[in-house]
Amino acid sequence: MISSCGSEEEKKPEISKEVIDPNSSLNAKFDDKIFSIPSPMQMAMLLEESKSPYNEFLLNDLDKVGDYTSEYKKAMNLGIYGTDLGYVSIYKQNSIALKYLSTIEKLTSKLGLEGAFDKDFMTRFEKNSTNKDSMMVIVSDAFKKSDNFLKSNNRKSVSALILVGGWIESMYLACNINKAHANQKILDRIAEQTETLNTIIELLTDYNKKGESDELIKDMKDLKFYFDQITINYEYMEPITNVQKKTTTLRHKTIVTVDSSTLNFINQKIEAIRAKVIE
């Protein structure tokens, strides 16, 4: 069994029966569940590709960073600022990107994650600040590094909160941009988050040992009520595989149906959830 984020992080290792049994292999289980949240960078890419105008007013205020004192708030808002950094980088807002980067540095330092956003990272970031493709790789690499560090240091709950914060911000950006400039691709992308939301509820529940996420879980379940109103018709078609290119092309058909009132409720709920996280 494998894991991205699991539920055992705060437990001390116990001697299992299998280990005590000398005939058994050492099957130490690092975790019992894997969770995967799509990269918020992909949402930022979609916003840029769909020619949505850049909107600085949607970003979380940098001055708020000092208000985030608990580990919970720091981790959630690291995800929020990380998504904002991805958004401004893709839109080549270099001077603003550097300000977000400096804020992220403060948060990562408070979370003991200096290694992911080290000197090497800063140099790469500054050198490539005019190339959005490189910026995307550099930011993703830094978050991957921090994810790996947290997971291998039994701090999977922090890693989970960063991912959830990132998802909330990417949804907030997409909902608001779509509200101002309706775009079918962005609308579809919002509607296609049902499975990710299910994963987020499961992930938060698994790590909610101290009850810090009680309110957020309740809010996410309310949000799920609206996502459950979206219908997705799926029809399987056999994929085509090109062995030489090691590529499989999926060919299924899907039709997503979401009415405008459901979308409005989703917008409002996302806005309310995000407001609580950044307050």
Partner: peptide
């Protein structure tokens, strides 16, 4: 570009599964 996550585990005769969205 990485999705920013590392999926690591110790496998032992078991299958592990997770959900994601493409």
């Amino acid at each position: 570009v990485s999705d920013g996550q590392v999926y690591t585990a110790f496998l032992d005769r078991e299958k592990a599964e997770f959900k994601t969205t493409f």
